[in-house]
Amino acid sequence: MLNFLQKLITFDTTQIENQAIEFIEGYVRNIYGDQLIYEKQDISDKGRYNLIIKNTNKPDVILAGHVDVVPELSKEQFIPRIDGNKLYGRGAVDMKAGVAINIALIDFMLKNKIKFWILSYTDEEYNFLGMKKFVEVYGGKIKPKLTIVTEPTNKIIYTGFRGIAVVNLQIGGVSVHSALKHLGINAIEEYIHYIENLEEYIQTKDSDGYVSLTNLAGIHGGIDKDGIIVSQANIVPNTAKGIFSLRLGNMLSYQEFESFTRNYLDKNGIKIISLEKKNWCYPLIQSDLLNKYSKYSKVESGLTFGYSDVQLIKEYIGGDCLLIGPGPFEKAHQIDEYVEIESIYQSKEIIEKILKDFA
């Protein structure tokens, strides 16, 4: 499992995952051959595809893991390195270790006669294209009783997750000479004030234990000259465009969000140039599973945990949906990202116990 993971880390999967997925398929074919079925699922984006490895057309269990990673902060991150109990590399913990666990569980599931699918999918870090394609094709057609996504969780079993919304917004202010700033509307500053007020607003809808957050991921502002934004130090910027996300701890609808946004900006004399919803996914709450899985590991509701696209499986396919994987989660996306080697094997053992009782 460790050698497989080290090789998987060497593939740059920030944009295209095909080489890594070909490696996964070749590795499994070399061991299991025609015992298993190998399905490539085109997601219609630059030739990218998901890989589904299965021993049945009607799975009781799905193990899933995404192969893509966030952009590297150093090319050395694609050179795996072991130091004691730590395996360093981009995607080591988020979540190529989880993919390695899924593949390592094939033998266990075959021996225990479990009907399974293993989904190695694309584009989780960006637009969820891989999981969207999977549920589009198989929603209503399969009825697994259990789905486990082996995301990094520090070996905690999460039964619920916050929702996520991603929005593009461009606003317009009023340009004046910077010496007369009080007569204008600085679009960049107002954008930041809007995000701060938006977070306060969505948190008013949170119930106990839930924490909604905003994240301004990128902003570009200045003077709009025929659609091109330029910066000029002595002029108050009249436009700002950005992308931001909402980590939803409540069932805030897009209509409620849009109403707040338009009312707030209008009240402050700010024009909306463009407003685009890219994703809007609600929280997943499975409180009935907290006791059901507590004998295997620590279980949490996930009300302060990040979004997982296992929520799409729950919505369109159904069954129990869990997150459980190695750690430390806190090192995901960091320049010194690593996975604790011991936690990989411990996570695999926890999942084996769940699957054994399930079988």
Rank of each mutant, 00 (worst) to 15 (best):
S178I: 13
G140A: 10
V166R: 10
E200K: 15
K267Q: 10
V93E: 00
T10E: 15
K111F: 02
I52R: 03
A97V: 07
L119S: 11
G91D: 01
G91H: 02
I228F: 03
I103K: 03
I21F: 01
K141T: 14
N186C: 08
Y32D: 05
K292I: 09
M95S: 08
K267S: 13
S245N: 15
Y88P: 11
I354Q: 00
K133H: 08
V167M: 01
M131D: 02
L322P: 11
D309S: 08
Y32S: 07
L183D: 12
I9G: 00
G33Y: 07
I223G: 02
Q255V: 04
I351Q: 02
N279Q: 12
L289R: 06
T159R: 04
V299P: 07
E330P: 01
E315P: 01
A104G: 12
Q255F: 03
Y201P: 02
R262Y: 13
D226N: 13
I79H: 11
L252T: 10
A104C: 05
K141V: 13
T153W: 04
I53C: 05
T147Q: 07
V339N: 08
I103A: 15
R81P: 05
Q232V: 14
I272M: 07
D357H: 14
V99R: 00
I219A: 07
Q15L: 09
W117M: 07
G249R: 00
T56D: 08
I52Y: 03
I228E: 06
S207C: 03
I272W: 03
F260T: 05
Y296I: 07
V166F: 04
E189H: 10
L8F: 14
E22S: 09
G249A: 09
I202F: 01
E189K: 06
G160C: 08
D336G: 11
L303Y: 14
I82D: 04
Y32C: 08
L275M: 12
L36P: 06
E17G: 07
N18E: 11
L2R: 11
L213V: 11
K54D: 01
S343Y: 02
F78V: 05
K7W: 09
E76W: 10
G242Y: 00
K298H: 03
I52G: 03
W280T: 03
L87P: 01
Y210V: 08
D60I: 06
P80A: 14
S44K: 14
P152C: 14
G325N: 09
D94Y: 13
D60A: 12
P237L: 02
D107G: 10
E124T: 12
Y307M: 13
V93T: 15
A187M: 05
I82C: 07
N268W: 08
V166G: 04
I273T: 05
V135A: 02
Y121L: 10
S178M: 11
L213N: 13
S74F: 03
F11W: 03
N238I: 03
I344K: 00
I101L: 13
Q41I: 11
L290C: 01
D224T: 05
K132V: 05
I285P: 00
I324A: 09
V70F: 07
S207L: 09
I148T: 11
S274R: 15
G318I: 05
E151Y: 10
I354V: 15
P80K: 12
N250L: 08
L36W: 08
